[in-house]
Computed example of a mutant assay.
Amino acid sequence: MKLSYNSQREGDSIILSIKGDLIGDEAGPRLVEIISDALQSKIKNCIIDLQEVRYISSSGIGVLITMLTKMRNAGGDVYLASPSEHVKKLLIITKLNNIFTVYESLDEAKEKVK
């Protein structure tokens, strides 16, 4: 399933909702660009809503890590919200659950990230 996404600003955060398979194809660089643009607008937090992501490839993981690195280098952070069971397992296997803060729901993430 082709990846689609949309981003909206809420306060000091940008919320990035991703749908489909995150395989780091042509959408990867565009997602990283959203982070760069957010940083230029003085946004320091990014919440990535993974509710509708079915699959993440190793390149997709690379995209998430690139986004995280960019944000953290600028004093910000990236949070993951609503991962499916499959994505949750992947985060645990790759130990990304130790690197990213993962929230069960988007509402919880919005509540905690202020």
Rank of each mutant, 00 (worst) to 15 (best):
K19M: 08
K19D: 05
R30V: 12
R30D: 05
L39D: 05
I48K: 03
I15R: 05
L22N: 14
D25N: 12
S17R: 11
L39Y: 03
D37A: 13
L22V: 12
P29M: 06
L39R: 11
S17I: 10
N45Y: 05
D49Y: 06
G24K: 03
I47V: 07
G24A: 04
E33L: 12
L16N: 08
E26I: 15
E33D: 15
C46M: 12
A38Y: 03
D25K: 05
L22Q: 08
I14G: 01
G28R: 07
S41K: 10
D37W: 05
S17G: 06
K44T: 13
N45H: 13
I18E: 00
D37I: 07
L31M: 00
P29Y: 15
I14C: 08
Q40K: 11
D49G: 04
I23E: 01
D37Y: 13
L39K: 01
E26N: 09
A27F: 06
G24H: 01
D37R: 14
S17Q: 14
R30S: 07
N45P: 00
I47W: 01
A38P: 04
L22W: 13
I48S: 09
I14V: 12
S41T: 14
G20S: 03
K19F: 05
A38N: 10
N45I: 06
S41C: 14
L16V: 02
G28S: 14
L39H: 09
I34P: 00
I34K: 15
G20V: 10
S36A: 10
S41D: 15
I34R: 02
E26Y: 11
I34Y: 02
L16R: 02
D37Q: 10
L31W: 06
E26V: 02
I34T: 10
L16C: 01
I18Y: 06
R30K: 14
N45E: 08
L16T: 04
E26R: 10
L22H: 06
G20P: 13
D21Q: 14
I15G: 07
G28W: 04
G28C: 05
C46H: 02
A27P: 01
A38D: 04
D37M: 08
I18R: 07
I43E: 07
I43A: 06
I48C: 13
L22G: 12
D21E: 15
I14H: 00
E33H: 11
L31P: 01
I15S: 13
I18A: 01
L31D: 04
I34V: 14
R30H: 08
G20L: 09
